[in-house]
């Protein structure tokens, strides 16, 4: 089993429990990272196939995705969708529940499937891969944690998030800990409401216990859900919203931890992503 590091950094967005806005966080981070001039490949590892709602205008094109490519039904270039904000999306695809079980069985047998697949893409060096994963332990999370250099653990400033943190930390320790190319885990508090005493206290407790590992807090903001409903990226829907600012801040923190200087190409903003396996626009 090849364990050498990938040529491009991989960020896994993970969560211990559902409903913390992880997919929103993944999409917003993708947009914020792409705005800095990086090429961003967003891979949806969640069978809910929801990342497309945030990143792609043309939803119909996301029926075929990672799942069908994995099953060799569609070539990889054909399932990549050019998304908004300069992000390229590899959707999970909409699939039947029995096929999903087959895929999960396959992934359980091929622990390095994602690593090998990413290797086969031969991505250019100024690319960043962002993985969206389903909440809680799953084969998808295992796959993601076997390749990620950096994890973004999404949580809410509430008791449940606090209590379920050890689950995700255990998995990270198991799959990322031994890897030499693994850098760090960052924590992102989503839907922070400073008017709630509990939220403030939880955030403070997290600050105290996590220190530098806390990437930042994203404010609860009506604009986030409205942007999703209007199928417009948050950054264009509400460029001055506090949540937009917070995501930018978290993305900067991420870049900082990745050692952004080595990532950014000299003329970053000039060139928009042109992937080697440029997806044809319509199959």
């Amino acid at each position: 089993m090849a364990q050498q590091g990938l040529t491009v950094p991989v960020v896994a967005v993970v969560a211990a429990k559902g409903g913390v806005g992880k997919t929103t966080v993944a999409a917003s981070l993708c947009a914020a990272l792409a705005a800095t001039g990086l090429r961003v490949l967003a891979i949806d590892l969640d069978p809910q196939n929801a990342l497309r709602l945030h990143l792609v205008a043309d939803l119909a094109g996301c029926e075929a995705g990672l799942a069908s490519a994995l099953l060799h039904q569609t070539p990889w270039p054909h399932v990549m969708r050019p998304g908004r904000s300069g992000v390229v999306l590899l959707p999970f695809g909409s699939i039947d529940d029995e096929i999903q079980l087959d895929i999960e069985r396959y992934l359980a047998q091929q622990p390095d499937w994602l690593r090998q697949t990413l290797d086969s893409f031969a991505l250019p060096p100024d690319t960043l891969v962002v993985l969206d994963t389903p909440p809680g332990p799953s084969v998808y999370l295992q796959q993601a944690l076997r390749v990620s250099q950096l994890n973004v653990v999404t949580l809410l400033p509430d008791a449940a998030s606090f209590a379920t943190l050890p689950i995700i930390d255990r998995m990270i320790g198991k799959y990322c800990g031994p890897r030499e190319d693994f850098l760090a885990t960052g924590y992102l508090v989503n839907q922070f409401d400073a008017s709630k005493r509990l939220a403030r206290d939880v955030l403070q407790a997290l600050r105290d216990s996590l220190g530098e590992r806390l990437l930042g807090a994203v404010h609860l903001d009506q604009a986030v859900s409205e942007a999703l409903a209007s199928a417009v990226p948050l950054k264009s829907y509400a460029p001055h919203a506090q949540a937009t600012h917070d995501f930018d801040h978290c993305a900067q923190q991420l870049m900082h931890r990745l050692g952004a200087a080595t990532l950014l190409p000299g003329t970053a903003s000039a060139a928009r992503p042109t992937f080697p396996s440029e997806p044809s626009h319509r199959a």
Binding site: H219, D221, Q222, A223, H240, A241
Partner: peptide, 13 residues
């Protein structure tokens, strides 16, 4: 500073 409007919108300022 952050402004919180009554309709749940915010603004960084």
């Amino acid at each position: 500073a952050t402004l919180y409007f009554a309709d749940g919108h915010t603004m960084r300022c």
